[in-house]
Design a binder for these strands. Structure first.
Lengths: 194, 194, 194, 194
DNA sequence: CATGAATGAGTTTTCATTCAT
DNA sequence: CATGAATGAAAACTCATTCAT
């Protein structure tokens, strides 16, 4: 029933990003999103099942595009070390380039109800898979230690990047996120110890 | 106006933990918490300003006790390396011992509105300060590298632990969290590289 | 403006009968009727003023045809007693032959709003007139008692048939409606008393 | 959860009757009923599950009281013939005494959705049982013919009364309903034939 | 003649909070 | 101190109808 494609589909998703970023998740009413998208309230329901579907679709479209970009970029990078650098760089670059999107995916959408968060979690799994592959390649190529647990390493990489972006937003995006790439990569690769 | 102390104060906070853990943040109505605490709805407003105050107080009481425990424990540990081990161990042990509390602080309370999350953030700062001190001590003692950025390292440590606990809950607390201490510490100290 | 005639006019009315019978009055949206009739939503408004007009026209077409049939049939029956028998028989036969139509006119259309029900009432008047004439003829011919009130008798005849058809539908049309003709006629003519 | 009893319970039901009678089923919003009952909108949900529950409860309370009255009255009447007279008389008297209630139960509530109508149908069954018993007693006492079908006779009695009340309301309650008792009883007992 | 995308008005229900007892 | 009945504001969604093509 819902079209899930077309000019207005994109307009509504982008309007949702702007409205949620500006007013916050709990003040992002359907009518506000509709007005921002220059469509009638009812039009939203021609393109989406319901409000939750708008939010999940938003995450899916934006995160899906990001993951595809990352996958494509990494496929051109030979060394797992450089792949990891590229992964962090793209993660930060992408969110730094669109602070509104960062606020929405990093802060606001996490307030959504369980059903929405579950869908979002599923989408994120694909990204975690990308991280896993970089780690596994690193081990296979003899660059990373064989005794590390892939899941532990993945949680370190994703958890650190996630926490870093959240901190950055909470500090009003005042500093450069991409400046964090090298120090973070260095920590990941070499750890704290002398 | 709000008493913020007494037998019923604790009863309400503990009831809130149980209700939120069982029904989720969005289904944890004041009347449900009151019933669980065996008090009348109105009684909650004798001990707390409003519902948000219950949530913030809950986090404050539980997290405050945890941070004090951590501070006390670390003061008895000489080496920063062992302090870091102890920090991770206590973090995991504490949440593993009380899965309901883990669900509430780790998952449910993050769906709360900005005002509550801001308060929670302030409480967390004290914990982040504890982590910072361990890192700084490690550098001072010549155990950790001098060229690492304390904030970057802190975000790695906190972000990784946070992501790990969240994953553990999402997987229904099926495995042992404390088993993760040593591999994680190893990663923090030595990194991924051979 | 509305054409009120043509191939699609009939197609829409018959589609409306099917949709209302299947989904019920409250789930019979214009778009559903349009799809069932293989026309676009807007096309309905080329043949009908509005949705209410579809419903009223439906009743008018179906009931009008029925009343004409009854009038023609009765004109060939000499005795008012046999006319009454024929009236009941045709009433039951007609609805028994088209259970969908029976459901729509007997159950679903009665949930419509006052304006539609009023129109339906006007159409029904013609049928009540037919009943009246049978009664009056019966009295004139000395077959029926002179002291009966025509309107009371008419309400008995119509009310009983109506209630009988409704019961039959509510019982899923499980038994034969036309089997009820003779016992009902007998009750009408001779009453309950020994 | 819903209290289903108390002063306000009755106030809300009676307010619903007045509002539905005055504005019609489709214009009887919860807020209008609340205002008429001098309570807040939310108060209605302390006494009823939802709006449908108000309507079903309305019918249940009013019809239930009526049926009890009829049962009690008939138990003091020895002859089935007089029981039938009393049944018709009470049916008409009750609705004539409260034209608003008559409009609501006879006209407006029949526009309600299937779920509500189903509940109403169940309540009506008890009344149909009362009619059945009168007929059966009449047969047993040798006053009514043994060859009549109880269900056919019941549909005649109920259908005729129902149609009569509906006609009366449609004619704006201009004439006396109770004047119809004797002619109707006569028709039921003796039929149309000379 | 026919289409079907777009419109936008309108209503039930929840639940944090109050305050008379 | 404690109660719990009462309050009332606030928002997602449907669907009959229009009109540019």
């Amino acid at each position: 029933m819902a079209k899930r494609t077309g000019e207005k589909y994109d307009a509504i998703i982008n309007a949702a990003v702007r409205v949620i970023a500006q007013y916050g998740y709990h003040q992002a009413q359907v009518s506000k999103i509709a007005r921002e998208a220059n469509v009638a309230d009812g039009t939203i329901y021609l393109y989406f099942e319901n409000k939750d579907d708008v939010l999940v679709s938003l995450f899916n479209e934006k995160m899906g595009a990001f993951i595809s970009d990352v996958e494509k970029a990494l496929s051109n990078v030979p060394s797992p070390v450089n792949q990891l650098r590229e992964l962090i760089r793209l993660h930060f670059e992408y969110l730094q380039a669109d602070a509104q999107l960062a606020i929405v995916t990093q802060i606001e959408l996490r307030q959504s109800k369980p059903a929405v968060r579950k869908e979002i979690g599923l989408i994120l799994k694909r990204y975690l898979g990308v991280i896993d592959r970089v780690i596994q390649d690193g081990i296979k190529d003899g660059l990373f230690r064989e005794d590390i647990d892939v899941r532990t390493a993945r949680r370190m990489i994703f958890g650190t990047m996630d926490e870093t972006v959240t901190s950055w937003i909470m500090k009003d995006c005042k500093y450069s996120l991409t400046d964090q790439v090298e120090p973070m990569l260095d920590l990941f690769l070499n750890g704290l110890s002398k």
